[in-house]
């Protein structure tokens, strides 16, 4: 994929990311490496100059973001990832906005995955704690039963305890056979739960490999993980 904003320079060039169902992939890299841009390109928030986005064998590069959501690609933004003025249940309902069928079963599945949401189902999300909000955000994104779930820095600004809890939830989501792509700053923690990782530097794949490989790779450690 090659893409950039407007007519400006390419932010990402010839970079390639793939994820299988039931797999967690971490995209790592220093600031300005184009991590978030990769996600936006996959979501269709900016147009590709070359390359393609393929989901379940189907080329979705030309579709609008809404249509991509319909095809099963779901996104949790870094900030403002919940509807703070709506209740937990309404958040889930809006997440399933594109579903025509009965959503109550899906809501029950989400409640099984995140039991706390069932307890708080009629509470306004703005009144929940940070960790609970992240669960609402994940739950909302899972309502369309996506094949790929993209998380933009899920651990940004949460405490270490909440981070552990969150990773635990992400692993549970993975077990439901969803492919997860995660952009992360906390490289070590992210790689510890990821199956594979990509390290982007100035918009290109610099390194890729399994979590362990990357953690052990001396060059990655030196340039990026801090020794």
């Amino acid at each position: 994929m090659t893409a950039g904003y407007g007519n400006g320079p390419d932010i990402i060039s010839s970079c390639s990311i793939n994820v299988d169902r039931g797999e967690i992939v971490a995209i790592l890299g220093p600031n300005g490496a184009g991590k978030s841009t990769v996600m936006k390109a996959m979501l269709g928030l900016l147009t590709l100059k070359s390359g393609s986005v393929i989901l379940n064998g189907e080329d979705i590069s030309k579709l609008s973001p809404q249509d991509r959501v319909k095809k099963g690609i779901s996104f949790v933004p870094q900030t403002k990832n919940v509807f703070a003025e709506l209740t937990v249940k309404e958040n889930l309902e809006v997440g399933a906005f594109l579903r025509e069928d009965n959503i109550n079963r899906v809501i029950e599945e989400i409640y099984d995955l995140f039991p706390i949401l069932k307890e708080k189902s009629s509470q306004i999300v703005g009144q929940l704690s940070g960790g609970q909000r992240q669960q609402v955000a994940l739950g909302r994104a899972l309502m369309i039963k996506p094949s790929v779930l993209m998380l933009d820095e899920p651990t940004a600004g949460v405490s270490p305890i909440v981070m552990d809890e969150l990773f635990h939830h992400i692993l549970r989501v993975k077990e439901t056979n969803v492919g997860i792509i995660m952009v992360e700053q906390n490289a070590k923690q992210a790689l510890s739960i990821s199956d594979r990782g990509y390290v982007l530097v100035t918009g290109e794949n610099k390194f890729e490999g399994s979590g362990e490989e990357l953690l052990k790779d001396p060059e990655v450690r030196r340039s990026f993980l801090g020794g």
Partner: peptide
């Protein structure tokens, strides 16, 4: 509900497929 969602958080509403 989709109207309230749009009013609350426009970007996320778009990501949820609200037109």
């Amino acid at each position: 509900t989709s109207m309230r969602a749009y009013s609350d958080n426009e970007d996320l509403a778009l990501l949820s497929g609200i037109d």
